[in-house]
Simulated assay, not measured.
Amino acid sequence: MPFANIKIPQAALSKTQKEELVHRVTNLFVDYFSEAARPHTMVLIEEVPDGGYGRADEVYTIPEAYRAKD
């Protein structure tokens, strides 16, 4: 079973954008593994809260300009 785990900042994508991401990733796996993979493909989108991630000792929060607009 193909499985994709995508972590994104909370509120970075709208519900519609997340749905599109699920469809696109599923289609990517189908391109690699054939149509037989579609019913077994799992795409998990995890939203990480502000302050819950960082790099090089810097904790990140998502700027307002990058938050999803529904």
Rank of each mutant, 00 (worst) to 15 (best):
M1R: 05
P2M: 05
P2D: 05
N5Y: 12
K7Q: 14
K7L: 11
P9Q: 12
P9D: 11
P9K: 03
Q10S: 06
Q10M: 09
L13Y: 01
K15S: 15
T16K: 15
Q17I: 12
Q17M: 05
Q17K: 04
K18D: 04
K18T: 11
E20H: 07
E20K: 06
V22K: 01
V22M: 03
V25L: 07
T26I: 11
T26V: 04
T26E: 06
L28R: 01
V30A: 09
V30I: 14
D31V: 07
Y32R: 11
Y32L: 11
F33V: 08
S34N: 12
E35N: 11
E35A: 09
E35L: 09
A36Y: 08
A36W: 05
R38M: 03
R38I: 01
R38Q: 00
R38N: 00
P39K: 00
P39W: 01
V43E: 00
V43S: 00
I45Y: 03
I45S: 04
I45H: 06
I45W: 02
E46T: 11
E46N: 13
E47D: 12
E47A: 10
E47S: 12
E47H: 11
V48N: 06
P49Y: 02
P49L: 01
D50T: 09
D50Q: 10
D50S: 08
G52Q: 07
G54C: 08
G54W: 03
R55L: 10
A56G: 14
A56L: 08
E58K: 15
E58M: 10
V59E: 08
Y60C: 07
I62R: 09
P63C: 01
A65Y: 02
Y66M: 06
R67A: 00
R67I: 06
A68E: 13
K69H: 15
D70Y: 07
